[in-house]
Amino acid sequence: MQGIGLLKGMFVTIQEFFRKPVTEEYPDVMPDLGDRFRGGTIKLKTSKCISCGICMNSCPNGSIKLTSVRDENNKRHLSTYVHDSGLCLYCNLCIESCPVKCIDWTNEFAFSGYSREDLIFDCIDLAKKRGYDVPEVKATPEAGEKG
């Protein structure tokens, strides 16, 4: 019958009318980024880090700079850890290569600065300020993360 499509269309729109909006209210509500999101700066757990420097070596752009000192037992201790997010291409190689899984992304995708220096983050300082060192029970990244 002709015209039945009009009623069907009106039924569809009235259903949409009463449905929950799909809008992401971003500045008010943080969006759910998902587990595989790469972005922000590096969330470093200083107590877990063994200062091996693999992350620094795996970085294709050289955006991670870390220095360490050796103590009397010839064990390395982290002294500085700097992430230049202006150079970072968010390839995830550092995080995948970390043998003790002590680094992760902070997922703060919206930062900006007036100069390039504003994009360089001292990760030890950041970890201290935000308390990343607190041991947290978190599900490890699932399979499929592997390259």
Binding site: T13, F18, K20, P21
Partner: peptide
């Protein structure tokens, strides 16, 4: 508002 709701917006 009606336009928004019918398009699943706010």
């Amino acid at each position: 508002k009606v336009a928004g709701f019918m398009q699943s917006r706010l």
